[in-house]
Computed example of a mutant assay.
Amino acid sequence: MPLFEIETDAHIIITWADDEAAAREVVDEAYPEDELLRMTKRPRNSWVISKGALGLTDRTLDPCMIARDCLSKSAGDKVNAIRLYRMETGCDVDQARRAIESNMVMGW
């Protein structure tokens, strides 16, 4: 079943549908008041949302994003994540520990 990316005036919807008509029906049922702006049949069975398109590329604005990235790179190893966070931000050990531990609690 093809994957469709559908943009309306208020939403971006990612859905599987047999064809374009079925994809339009999904939008009409879920958001009847929305105006369809664009519909794209995706070439693969996955989808990606560009952080650049959403304005989320400035990593200096969100220390949690940096901490989560460090946790991901270290595969959850707290000590290694703290080291990576310090290298990335230039902060001291205590600040890095707090940032990493608070993100571990949130389930990064």
Rank of each mutant, 00 (worst) to 15 (best):
W47I: 08
W47A: 15
W47C: 14
W47R: 06
W47H: 14
V48L: 15
S50N: 12
S50C: 10
S50A: 14
S50W: 09
K51P: 02
K51H: 09
K51S: 09
G52E: 14
G52I: 08
G52T: 06
A53C: 12
A53W: 12
A53R: 14
A53K: 14
A53L: 15
L54H: 06
L54Q: 13
L54Y: 05
G55R: 08
G55I: 08
G55F: 09
G55E: 07
G55W: 08
L56K: 12
T57G: 10
T57F: 04
D58P: 01
D58K: 09
D58T: 04
D58W: 03
D58H: 04
D58Q: 07
R59C: 02
R59P: 00
R59F: 12
R59T: 12
T60W: 09
T60D: 12
T60V: 11
L61A: 11
L61R: 12
L61G: 10
L61C: 03
L61H: 05
L61T: 06
D62P: 02
D62T: 12
P63T: 07
P63E: 10
P63R: 10
C64D: 15
C64G: 15
C64M: 12
C64W: 11
C64H: 14
C64K: 15
C64R: 15
M65F: 09
M65C: 05
M65I: 05
I66H: 00
I66W: 00
I66M: 10
A67D: 03
A67H: 02
A67Q: 03
A67V: 04
R68N: 12
R68T: 07
R68G: 05
R68Y: 02
R68M: 13
R68F: 03
R68D: 10
D69M: 11
D69L: 08
C70N: 00
C70Y: 00
C70A: 15
C70I: 04
C70H: 01
L71P: 00
L71G: 01
S72F: 12
S72K: 15
S72L: 13
S72C: 08
S72D: 15
K73V: 03
K73D: 11
K73Y: 04
S74L: 05
S74M: 05
S74K: 04
S74Y: 02
S74H: 03
S74F: 02
A75W: 02
A75K: 13
A75G: 03
A75L: 10
A75R: 12
A75C: 05
A75E: 13
G76M: 11
G76C: 11
G76R: 10
D77E: 12
D77C: 01
D77H: 05
K78N: 01
K78L: 07
V79I: 13
V79K: 13
V79N: 09
V79G: 04
V79H: 06
N80E: 14
N80T: 12
N80W: 01
N80I: 08
N80Q: 13
N80G: 01
N80M: 13
A81H: 00
A81C: 06
A81E: 00
A81N: 00
A81L: 02
I82K: 07
I82S: 00
R83H: 09
R83D: 06
R83N: 10
R83V: 04
L84K: 06
L84C: 05
L84F: 08
L84G: 01
L84Y: 07
